[in-house]
Nucleic acid binder design. Structure first.
Length: 480
RNA sequence: GCCCCCAUCGUCUAGCGGCCCAGGACGCCGCCCUUUCAAGGCGGUAACGGGGAUUCGAAUUCCCCUGGGGGCACCA
């Protein structure tokens, strides 16, 4: 996107508050910034907005970075911590106070909140009522002498219109008369988002601000602040459509996993996650869907960002993940499975056996977690083996179940121990039962579930003794 | 209550005045393949919220309505 108004290299930033793990919505925002930077050969800055001491936690700073790294979103500068730049915000606040663009406010948060609620109850518009806006110096002294807390509030313009051109939405305008004065420095002296954000975007030379639509309205306030600060031409803004749940409400825990970490733990590949997230609010100009990060970056353009909220579709993500699993070189898949297998079965995991699982299971897997679970019957000690309840009822209700198990055991006791040798179809044919009817019972007895890894390969991997043992157990249980 | 944004299949989306009685993908349904379940192949179901206006012509432009979402913190 060539933009004469902002010459020079593109500089974008991702600026999360360290108040929790990285949400998929935030990850999508980070991704779009990264894509934009990479597409233009620009700079991607990571900035931590930790000005809210009450909610920010240092451990989240690391957690967020880890999630970004996992996704593959490498940043070129930072992380800058706003907590380490307080002097700059303090200086800016003083300038605003000196120029009269901001004023000291002696209202407590509780008082402001109470008045807002009263306004709401009376169906009046909430927002700071301007009580301290034009205090006389004498009055200010009295209030200060009372020991009342003193915050700094920005005086928004009394009239006129604020407008800016959003790169995805076009011109956005709002009447200043509808925008209340807002706090830029807390009574404890710490800066509030608007101030720190305006100062940093300016000082860091940010050329494009790409963020969620929930920040659309706040842009006018930040723009006014910059203007009051005499900051020069502002960055271009691009507000991304929100990501919502299946009910179109803001994406939250009750819609299932929302933290990037949850998806990682659930066995989703970062390639799939990135690919899926890129398609939430953006699409290439052709029909490609399964795309690698570099491919997406090459095709990425803010012009093609959607305007309306996107509902998170777990089913499509799962499909996408399967696509990526199937594309992985087997050794790569194995490497990703190993830590997961060790965590589940202990350090003694048989690497060769796991390699076999990859061989027979890669093409059918949807997540790493599901693939490992399908191999439970191989890795768990025999004492821990048990047939899932629903699979057992499937087995028990199978026609001529006892005969089937007997015949299968009979065959496996003497056959050659290869995938061809353990092929059960001839046995079932002799019995006169269809594989479709009888096999789920064998699956249940041997794998503990009626659906899973390919049966004959599984039997070969399990070994003759263990297989026969499980068939015998199932047979015995059938008698009781 | 006030302000802002948005509106194509169930979902993600293509479409930027005629190529569209609307294309792709996920899901769903059916068939094929088959070692259950998957995966794979083939086919099918399914949408321009409503009303005006502009135009020879509107999913595409404008207005109104309706609907959805966001914001209105000493959160970001």
């Amino acid at each position: 996107m060539d933009d004469p108004a902002t010459p020079g290299p593109v500089r974008v930033r991702f600026a999360p508050a360290p108040t929790g793990s990285l949400h998929v919505g935030s990850a999508r925002t980070a991704l779009f910034n990264w894509l934009f930077a990479r597409h233009h050969g620009g700079v991607f800055v990571l900035r931590i907005e930790d000005t809210d001491a009450a909610r920010s936690r240092p451990e989240w700073i690391e957690g967020i970075q880890e999630s970004l790294r996992w996704l593959g979103l490498d940043w070129d500068e930072g992380p800058y911590l706003q907590g380490e730049r307080l002097d700059r915000y303090a200086a800016a606040a003083e300038r605003l106070l000196a120029s009269g663009r901001a004023y000291e406010c002696f209202c407590t948060p509780e008082e402001v909140q109470a008045r807002n609620e009263a306004a709401r109850d009376a169906h009046r518009t909430p927002g700071y009522d301007g009580r301290c806006r034009d205090l006389t110096p004498a009055r200010r002294e009295v209030l200060a002498a009372e020991g009342r807390p003193r915050s700094l509030r920005f005086r928004t313009p009394d009239h006129g219109t604020s407008r800016f051109t959003d790169l995805v939405r076009g011109e956005v305008a709002v009447e200043w008369s509808t925008v209340a004065d807002f706090v830029i420095r807390r009574s404890d002296g710490s800066p509030v988002f608007f101030l720190a954000n305006a100062v940093d975007d300016s000082e860091m030379g940010i050329t494009h601000v790409i963020r969620g639509e929930d920040l659309l309205d706040s842009t006018h306030r930040v723009l006014a602040l910059r203007d009051a600060l005499g900051d020069g031409p502002p960055p271009r803004y691009a507000h991304l459509p929100l990501m919502v749940g299946s009910d179109r409400a803001k994406l939250s825990k009750r819609h299932g996993a929302v933290a990037l970490e949850d998806f990682r733990a659930g066995g989703y590949l970062p390639e799939a996650m990135l690919n899926y997230l890129a398609l939430q609010g953006w699409a290439p100009d052709d029909d490609r869907e399964v795309m690698a990060a570099g491919e997406i970056a090459a095709a990425f353009d803010l012009d093609r960002v959607t305007h309306s909220a996107a509902a998170f579709d777990h089913a499509k993500l799962e499909w996408m993940n399967g696509e990526w699993i199937r594309r992985l070189p087997p050794d790569d898949l194995l490497a990703r499975l190993e830590p997961r297998a060790r965590e589940r079965y202990g350090d003694g995991v048989d690497a060769e056996l796991l390699r076999d699982v990859v061989r027979i299971g890669q093409e059918r897997a949807s997540t790493l977690a599901a693939l490992v679970e399908q191999a439970d019957f191989l890795f768990e000690p025999d004492e821990a083996f048990e047939v899932a309840a629903d699979s057992w009822s499937r087995l028990a209700s199978t026609e001529r179940a006892s005969e089937v198990l007997d015949a299968v055991a009979g065959h496996l006791a003497g056959c050659e121990w290869t995938a061809e040798g353990v092929d059960l179809r001839p046995v079932l044919a002799e019995l006169g039962v269809k594989p479709r009817k009888a096999l789920p019972a064998v699956y249940a007895a041997v794998e503990g579930r009626h659906a899973g890894l390919p049966l004959f390969d599984s039997i070969v991997l399990l070994g003759r003794d263990r297989t026969l043992g499980r068939l015998a157990d199932a047979r015995a249980r059938l008698e009781t």
